[in-house]
Write a protein that binds this DNA or RNA. Structure first.
Lengths: 252, 252
DNA sequence: CGATTGTTTGAGGCCAGTCAAAGTTAGTGG
DNA sequence: CCACTAACTTTGACTGGCCTCAAACAATCG
């Protein structure tokens, strides 16, 4: 039952694909992002057999929760999700946003339980990849094994970029870098790199970037006043992307 | 040629082992940290054959540098190292400290070049594990493959803990959490969890925690005045570890 | 329509950064 | 052995950027 979704363009196609059992990794528009270029067609077919496509997640619903037993990793197929980790004293930290083609759940491997919870920011669909079947297949397909090592390494380098951001950058630089990250990931998905709709709230952005929502809002207003951005609620239009780059690197 | 090293206890033993070609992963005191418990003795022997043990790194020397071609991951055998990442605008971020039994180099897998540089904080020795040989072996030894997935997942969850720390905690909490982290890792190595010598400078600590050296120094002084710590240059003696835990969680 | 949630804007305070200087340690060479 | 230097650490006074508190505004939904 295809339900109405608040998405724009390619997302709609993805949702239809997710509900179509005949769809495969081979025909997926996202496979250049999600899968290694080095996998051959027949290797992808093997992978395809173990991938499970489930019905869309509604906004706000959990893909998995902290401390649940780890069984699968998930590739976002449409929509978007956030990962949050809850610390001892109870407050939440958004550790990442995941857009179509990106993979979540890698945190669960370490101790066989997920350390994060993952929540849909909007209606989203995912491809579920049972971990034990993936590892079995990896032993037979060296390029698949290598791909998953690379995926995990990418998550590490990405997290370390965020560490640097939080450790060294002021509010303007964090927001600029954040917008540029979304922009670049949209470009990779053949979407506009300058005009897009943020799927997450100001609260999520602030939480992720270690800022209060007031500060996030103030920086957006300031950048708009400076003519760098046009902001209308969640719609972002990057007017001067080079200026944004200079801001993000602190090059005044 | 065994050279004089400024280390205390177990380190000295490790160094001698590193120079002794007869030493193996099976006899290594650190294998409970470095290797998976699930590996059988004969499996460890296979791994042992591909591990290369090189002569100690001198303090301040590089294990590898940013943008060098990725070939190997490394297990710290004695001493300690720091990983730093250099951002576009040139300044450095310490992304982690690695103590004996811990593994560095996982950042290099993603793009076949190291994104970080790794530098010895003191005289240190490492076990080099050529990545392509490790992956070959992993395809034949499922528990080894699983172990490396776990290692990488641990690095991810560790980095995400640091993200939370930088995003949510004040200076006191950061220092407390940092000391507790070192303490726990010492305990795992059967060393004192309350009395130890920090291998890194105040500058490194501040860089890692997103604080200035002045703030680091002030927090140390304050904690000492409060009777929580005894600090003498790099020697730390945790007097009230429960108080330190309460500080780290923000439980006033 | 009211209620709720999310966003924007303003005023004031505080924590950590900046600047500055003194104290301490380690290393070097005479 | 000591004088000297360089590097590191500590402490103080001051500043500023972001947080806190508060209130108005906007959007969404039943």
């Amino acid at each position: 039952m295809p339900n109405k979704l608040n998405n724009n363009g390619p997302e709609a196609i993805d949702i239809r694909c997710a509900n179509d059992q005949k769809i495969s990794c081979n025909s997926c528009q996202l496979n250049s992002i999600c899968l290694p270029i080095s996998l051959h067609v027949d290797e992808i077919n093997h992978l395809d057999e173990i991938v499970q496509r489930s019905k869309p997640l509604q906004k706000g619903s959990y893909l998995y929760r902290t401390n649940e037993t780890f069984r699968s990793i998930f590739a976002v197929r449409s929509g978007s999700v956030k990962a949050i980790s809850v610390s001892d004293n109870g407050d939440e930290q958004v550790t990442g946003f995941y857009l179509p083609g990106e993979v979540v759940g890698l945190d669960g491997i370490a101790n066989n339980i997920y350390t994060n919870s993952v929540i849909a920011l909007e209606t989203a669909s995912v491809c579920e990849i049972p971990f034990h079947r993936m590892t079995e297949l990896s032993a037979r397909l060296p390029s698949l094994q290598h791909h998953f090592f690379r995926l995990m390494s990418q998550e590490i380098t990405q997290d370390q970029r965020i560490i640097t951001l939080l450790s060294k950058s002021n509010a303007d630089q964090r927001i600029a870098a954040f917008l540029l990250s979304i922009s670049a990931r949209n470009r990779r998905r053949k979407l506009s790199a300058t005009a897009f709709c943020l799927p997450m709230s100001r609260t999520d952005i602030g939480n992720f970037l270690g800022l209060t929502i007031e500060t996030v809002s103030r920086v957006f207003s300031r950048l708009q006043k400076q003519g760098v951005l046009n902001v209308n609620r969640k719609d972002i239009d990057i007017v001067q992307i080079d200026t944004l780059r200079r801001i993000s690197t602190g090059t005044t």
